[in-house]
Structure formats: structure tokens, C-alpha cells
Computed example of a mutant assay.
Amino acid sequence: MATYFADPYSSWQRGGNENRNGMIRRHPPKRTPVAPSMAREPQETIDETDNRPMRVLG
């Protein structure tokens, strides 16, 4: 897996990352207990985030 680290104090390199993190944070509310029966929910979040069209990519 390719890993990318932004340079310190280079906010323009983190814009897409912060946007994606914000989309992921909308799904489970804070302090939600994680139970084995919730195994499907993270995959749904991942699928929705990965399949969302991005303006940058056309």
C-alpha cells in the first residue's frame, strides 16, 4: 500500500485528506460502542466514501 505523508506546515498537501476524513466522521457518532454485530457498517462507510465522485478526478 502506498503511504503519503504531507510536509509540516504545508496545508495545501492535506486538503483532500481532511475532506475525506470529514466524510468518514459523519457516519458513526462519537463514543459509539463497537459490537461484533456492527461489522457490516464500516464496510458500508468505506464503499460509500470510495465510490463517491471527486471533482478533482473529473
Rank of each mutant, 00 (worst) to 15 (best):
N51Q: 08
T45Q: 06
S10A: 15
A2M: 04
R40T: 00
R40M: 04
P28I: 06
N19C: 04
A35Q: 15
D7W: 07
E48V: 13
H27D: 02
R26K: 10
S37C: 11
E18C: 09
E44R: 15
R52P: 03
D47E: 13
T32N: 02
H27C: 06
D47G: 04
M38Q: 04
R26H: 07
P36R: 02
S11Y: 09
G15A: 12
H27F: 10
P53R: 02
F5L: 05
V56M: 03
Y9N: 14
G22D: 08
A2H: 08
R31V: 07
Y4E: 03
A2C: 02
W12P: 03
R26C: 00
R40G: 04
N21F: 02
M54I: 13
G16Y: 07
D47I: 14
M23Y: 11
M54A: 10
L57Y: 14
N21Y: 05
P33V: 06
G22E: 06
M38A: 05
A2D: 07
R26G: 02
A39R: 08
T3L: 07
P8L: 10
R40A: 01
G16L: 07
E41Y: 14
H27R: 11
P42A: 00
Y4S: 01
R14L: 13
E41M: 13
P28V: 02
P53H: 03
A6M: 02
T3I: 11
D47W: 07
R40N: 01
S11R: 05
R55Q: 13
E41D: 12
Q43R: 14
T45D: 03
R25T: 06
E48T: 15
N21V: 10
N17K: 12
V34K: 10
T45K: 08
Y4T: 09
I24A: 14
R20F: 12
R14M: 13
N19A: 08
R55V: 15
P33R: 05
P8N: 09
N51D: 08
P8G: 08
E18P: 07
P36F: 05
G58M: 06
Y9S: 11
T32D: 03
S11W: 07
P42E: 06
P28T: 03
P42V: 03
T32C: 07
P8F: 05
F5N: 02
M54T: 12
N17V: 14
N51F: 01
K30F: 00
L57N: 08
I24W: 06
D7P: 04
D50Y: 07
T3Q: 10
P8R: 09
W12H: 09
M23S: 01
P33F: 00
E44D: 11
D50W: 07
G22F: 04
T49Y: 03
P33S: 05
R55F: 14
R25I: 04
V56Q: 04
I46K: 12
W12R: 10
I46N: 05
I24E: 08
V56G: 02
M23E: 04
M54H: 11
R40W: 02
Y4I: 09
A35R: 15
S11V: 13
P42Y: 00
P28G: 01
S10W: 10
S10F: 10
E41S: 11
S37N: 13
N51P: 00
T32G: 00
R20W: 12
